[in-house]
Design a protein around this nucleic acid. Sequence first.
DNA 1: CGTCTTCTTTTGACATAGTCAAGAAAAGAC
DNA 2: GTCTTTTCTTGACTATGTCAAAAGAAGACG
Lengths: 164, 164
Amino acid sequence: METTTWAQQLREAGLRVTRPRLSVLSVLADHPHADADSIVTGARQLHPSLSPQAVYGVLKAFVAAGIARRIEPAGAPALFELRVGDNHHHLVCRSCGAVADVDCAVGAAPCLSPSDTAGFVVDEAEVVFWGLCATCRSRGREVAARTDAMQVEQQHHIRGGAGA
Amino acid sequence: METTTWAQQLREAGLRVTRPRLSVLSVLADHPHADADSIVTGARQLHPSLSPQAVYGVLKAFVAAGIARRIEPAGAPALFELRVGDNHHHLVCRSCGAVADVDCAVGAAPCLSPSDTAGFVVDEAEVVFWGLCATCRSRGREVAARTDAMQVEQQHHIRGGAGA
DNA sequence: CGTCTTCTTTTGACATAGTCAAGAAAAGAC
DNA sequence: GTCTTTTCTTGACTATGTCAAAAGAAGACG
């Protein structure tokens, strides 16, 4: 997708078209699950003077306008993605933090039905699948066997990375 | 459950029995989804000199030993619970942050089976159901209708609270 | 029961991932 | 081109933690 299209998207969402926003959109398109820090780094290649706070502001505007979604895997900074409105879920690698999209689990509907809602009215079911990505498995096959006890520690190293 | 039993549990988990740990256990038993801050406040009633860092240390030890579980709903500080080993899920109120346990969702198996794992080996499926608890619904019925646009903001107010 | 070793806790500094506010700058309307 | 409103920049601040060194308990052993 190109700059013109991004501009349209922004206008349709009721947002002004600015260079910081176009830069962030471009980074999000290339890195579907990037954290704020990665987005700052990436967007600076297109707009070197861009401040972290500007990125936070842009991301907040995007989420409020519904053109981006914020996901917060436990133990990692928030990640942002442009894929919205389809209630898909995520696979997260415990070792490297890589995230991959996964379409709604088999049967879709079951995911929205807790057996007992304890008086809550549920409007969304969020599912996170935790595991190891292909790269981490092949890179540390025998290490992986001992990983159980280390998982809590390793989650601190999670960074937004390329999805598989 | 009483102090003697907590002591047993600690010993069985390979942990020494100390006053800070017994205090934290007691608070967790009374408040099944408490955040670190609430735990500090609660535990200080039993052990006034207890420091926040000690609580973080105790909680980390509990999680590592497998006698507590840490859950991190998006936009809220981490919560801790003693119920471990049954892979249950959670209902979270978007308005007040209250958390309730929910046994594995209807169909159970489908939720553990993403349709395409993108090369990941999945070892856990974590499900969070977002909605409004009974109290928040009755307290702000017409307000609730306008809540959609505010959800992102309101999540900042989430505190560990009593489950329903 | 007293000593010794080891594990915990305390204390205090530091880190991360953000938020908030005021003024400067840019976007879009006319 | 000028004006109004939104957005960005700059800088201070907040929340939720982590890390390390030394003091203090817990439990083992004689």
